[in-house]
Design a protein around this nucleic acid. Structure first.
Length: 820
RNA sequence: GCUCGGGUGGCGAAAUCGGUAGACGCGAGGGACUUAAAAUCCCUUGGGACAAAAUCCCAUGCGGGUUCGAUCCCCGCCCCGAGCACCA
């Protein structure tokens, strides 16, 4: 990087007014001509990868929310560049997926035609907003040069045993005869026709992310991410410590067998009065007595038909008795075995012990089916006979009752003791469960990368050899999902009929495409290697630029995208492809913009199209406004009327530069404020507190304007680099006007003198009994005794301090509190 | 239901470690310039008591608590937003 930018020429004398559209056009042209935004990836000395989440290129064009997000990242990147880093700020498009496909279906344009159009429009809007993006390294997930490697990724996971196939349920609309994504199911019905949705079992591909649950959880303690994001991931991974308990029973033929359950409350085992299996539990068949067979079968059928969404949201308890009983290992009593859909096969062991006294769901179930409810834990003001009107689920204050030898134990101690005792008989062991389940990556859709698998009659499932990648997504007219229950690609024999790469016999391609989240789980690895078509990510460039230094994006991706990216990075690390296992060293979630108190939506007609605003106010004023409207990490309220404020600020900055005096004697107060401002703006940008950084610059501008005399060069010029991350075009223009050479972004962030930034005298607050009664101007390092003398001389203070003070609190440099 | 945010003037907001509540901006009111308007510039602007200044009282969703001192910490509520949702 050229860090030798200097000033040499005197000021131009002819005054002009600030014309954003001319200046912005001029500098965008110059940046392009000079390659100002280009980063030399090979030769960079101090690489800094400033990444933002890439957009889905919608037909509506760039949303003000996108621009808010990108501008925040751009400011951070430009600031790092001014701090001497070689900043790489790439941007691309996440253009595969159901979102694009549905839109294409709606407007009747093929996605292969639609997406390039949308991308062109996005690119135009993005360039207009003045982002420091190096467009030589852009990408779209829909390009074969990109998804070739998405498919490669699948093959690597397959090799590692992390990809496998199993039956799984999908939402199925019986009228439209199509597979639906979860977001297309509204209240249990098809979004389009309103028909109740059913479950259908299909063979689908999964990634074994659950293997990584402990690591994904533990690493969170060591990465610099927004706390809210980490918490969301922790909850999603959902670690539960508990025990697996075995309950003895007999199947219908009289053979002994056991039912294993997972519980986090082994202490409540004396209160287990029944058991419940998930309807699809493998033991159900052998445990169902002939008398109950009919109703059990009927129940299983009804839950199978139920759509996934309804099953997960209805709270009404249903279930049937199997006719069999198991032995509670603690009480040694017989308890009935039921089946119910409130027990999920995918979690734990697919079976539970029902403890109605101390679990809300069990309480509901037991009440409905009139099963016994026994209290085994008491609160502080209860005893064993206190009736239970609802489940008592408190742990901390609980004491065991009706629990044999464990009566009187505290809950936590009882958990341990009971598991230890049962473990001796082989019917218990401590276990940790995670709620994170494996990632289903199959989509019975068209608009995604085909999964690179070929099924052969004799060889079975055969991965497409890496040399044959990419498996191109063919252009087909009828990309609409239909009643086949599989991808539209399955209608194209000419595409899926292929020879087996192993034996040459007739084979059939996998016709499902992969999940959109797989596309975007690794794009950050690709950016620096764009152009290296022989590898997914080139070794040296990856070593230099990754992991990502700073990643900024919306918290709506706190879980899926960010977790999948971490998983993929770990898997690639374990396979020896990457030297690091966490992709993003630092992540910050930005907030969201609402407009005048309401969420922006098309139906409300309050969507902000950035084009109009940039037209009217200029990109610089618009960017600065977006950063000023609220705390970046919380978002804020977009109000049309307020943009004039940031524009006025830029007008004044421009005018100050035009009218500033040459050299002059430094004004101490102004210089002090300048150095304070330099410090504050830098600190604020570093912690993404952009709104207060802008406020600090405005404040300094006010100091300059309110002064007795015309501000001179040394007082005005440092504002140019300070404002440049927010308003890059005007900064370049003023830099040039004032004799700067090259780009202001190749100059250095101004340094501040900490001694100069200190006030000589301070205003010390004087309180009496904690109430402010006066303010005294004193030396910065005044002692408590001296301060007392000055304070008591103030009549307002002494009015309230009759008699001797009982206590004096002195915070040096801050306040003096006299307690009487 | 659970988890995470948030609630401060007319409005967007600030207060970085428990230490001057309301920085900065918008809007509003008044004034200067102007034939006039826009733009620009200057002044005022949380509420109340006082003619005014000085000064005092009240005020950070509600009710308590801790503290010399609470927008900030603790307990109990209310409201708004986001995410998750029968996870044993």
């Amino acid at each position: 990087m050229d860090n030798s930018a200097t000033r040499n020429d005197p000021l131009p004398s002819d005054a002009v007014t600030y014309d954003p559209s001319a200046i912005e056009e001029k500098w965008q042209r110059i940046w392009q001509e000079r390659g100002t935004n280009h980063t030399d990836l090979q030769r960079a000395q101090r690489p800094f990868y400033a990444l933002m989440m890439f957009p889905y290129p919608s037909a509506e064009g760039l949303h003000v929310g996108n621009l808010f997000a990108f501008t925040g990242n751009d400011i951070y990147g430009r600031f790092q560049r001014l701090m001497g880093h070689n900043v790489f700020e790439p941007l691309g498009y996440d253009a595969f997926g159901i979102h694009s496909e549905n839109y294409a279906l709606k407007v009747g344009v093929h996605p292969m035609d639609l997406i390039p159009r949308n991308i062109a429009n996005f690119r135009r809007q993005l360039e207009r907003s003045g982002l420091m993006v190096d467009w030589r390294y852009t990408l779209s997930t829909t390009e074969p040069e990109y998804y070739k490697w998405t498919q490669w990724l699948f093959l690597q996971l397959l090799k590692q045993g992390l990809a496998y196939k199993k039956q799984a349920a999908v939402n199925w609309c019986p009228k439209d005869k199509t597979v639906l994504a979860n977001e297309q199911v509204i209240g249990g019905a098809c979004e389009r026709c309103g028909t109740p949705v059913e479950q259908r079992l299909l063979e689908q591909w999964f990634f074994r992310i659950s293997n990584y649950a402990p690591r994904l959880l533990e690493n969170l303690d060591h990465i610099d991410w927004s706390e809210t994001t980490k918490t969301a991931q922790r909850n999603w991974i959902g670690r539960s410590e508990g025990a697996e308990l075995a309950f003895e029973t007999h199947d219908v033929k009289g053979n002994e067998c056991e039912i294993r359950v997972f519980t986090t409350r082994p202490d409540t085992i004396y209160g287990a009065t029944y058991m419940v299996l998930a309807p699809e539990h493998p033991l159900v068949e052998s445990l169902t007595k002939p008398k109950q067979k009919k109703q059990v079968e009927r129940y299983r059928e009804s839950t199978e038909k139920q759509d996934i969404v309804t099953r997960k949201t209805s709270t009404d308890k249903t279930g049937v008795f199997t006719g069999s009983y198991a032995i509670n290992p603690a009480t040694e009593k017989e308890i009935p075995i039921w089946i119910s859909d409130y027990v999920l096969m995918e979690y734990g062991t697919g079976a539970i012990m029902g403890v109605p006294g101390h679990d809300e769901r069990d309480f509901e179930f037991a009440t409905k089916f009139e099963l016994p409810i026994v209290r085994v834990v008491c609160g502080e003001r209860e005893d064993a006979n206190t009736p239970l009107h609802k489940a008592f689920t408190e742990c901390e204050s609980g004491t065991l009752v009706n629990s044999g030898v464990f009566d009187g134990f505290q809950v936590e101690a009882a958990k341990k003791a009971i598991v230890e005792l049962l473990a001796k008989g082989g019917s218990a062991k401590p276990v940790v469960h995670y709620r994170l389940h494996d990632w289903c990556i199959s989509r019975q859709r068209y608009w995604g990368p085909p999964i690179p698998i070929i099924y052969c009659e004799s060889c079975g499932t055969v991965p497409v050899p890496e040399k044959d990648l990419p498996v191109l997504l063919p252009f087909i007219e009828d990309f609409k999902p239909d009643d086949s229950g599989v991808s539209p690609l399955a209608r194209h024999e000419e595409w899926y009929r292929v020879e087996c790469p192993k034996c040459g016999k007739p084979g059939r391609r996998e016709t499902d495409v992969s999940d959109n989240f797989l596309d975007n789980s690794w794009y950050f690895l690709r950016y620096p290697s764009v152009g290296h078509d022989d590898v997914p990510f080139e070794k040296n460039v990856t070593k230099k630029w990754l992991p990502v230094n700073s990643y900024i994006g919306g918290n709506e991706h706190a879980v899926l995208h960010l977790l999948y990216s971490r998983f993929i990075t770990m898997a690639l690390h374990d396979a020896g492809h990457l030297a690091f296992e966490e992709p993003f060293t630092r992540f910050r979630a930005h907030g969201h913009i609402i407009r005048e108190g309401a969420k922006m939506s098309k139906t409300q007609g309050n969507i902000v199209n950035p084009d109009e605003y940039i037209e009217r106010w200029g990109a610089d004023a618009f960017r600065t406004y977006l950063m000023f409207l609220g705390p970046y990490e919380q978002g804020g309220d977009f109000r049309d009327a307020s943009i004039s404020g940031t524009r006025r600020f830029l007008d004044r900055l421009f005018a100050s530069v035009q009218s500033m005096a040459g050299d002059g004697e430094a004004d101490h107060a102004v210089m002090r404020k300048l150095h304070q401002t330099i410090r504050k703006v830098g600190d604020d940008i570093a912690r993404l507190s952009y709104n207060t950084a802008v406020a600090a610059m405005m404040e300094y501008m006010n100091v300059l304007r309110k002064g007795e005399r015309t501000p001179h060069r040394d007082e005005v010029l440092p504002l140019i680099p300070l404002v440049s991350p927010f308003a890059p075009h005007i900064a370049e223009e003023l830099w040039e006007q004032t004799g700067g050479t090259g780009s202001v972004f190749d100059s250095a962030w101004p340094s501040f003198d900490p001694r100069l930034a200190l006030e000589d005298s301070i205003e010390l607050v004087v309180q009496v009994n904690g109430k402010v009664r006066g303010k005294i101007t004193v030396a910065r390092d005044i002692s408590e005794q001296e301060a007392m003398v000055v304070a008591l001389a103030d009549p307002t203070v002494s009015r309230f301090t009759t008699g001797d003070p009982r206590k004096v609190i002195f915070v040096p440099g801050r306040l003096l509190n006299i307690v009487v």
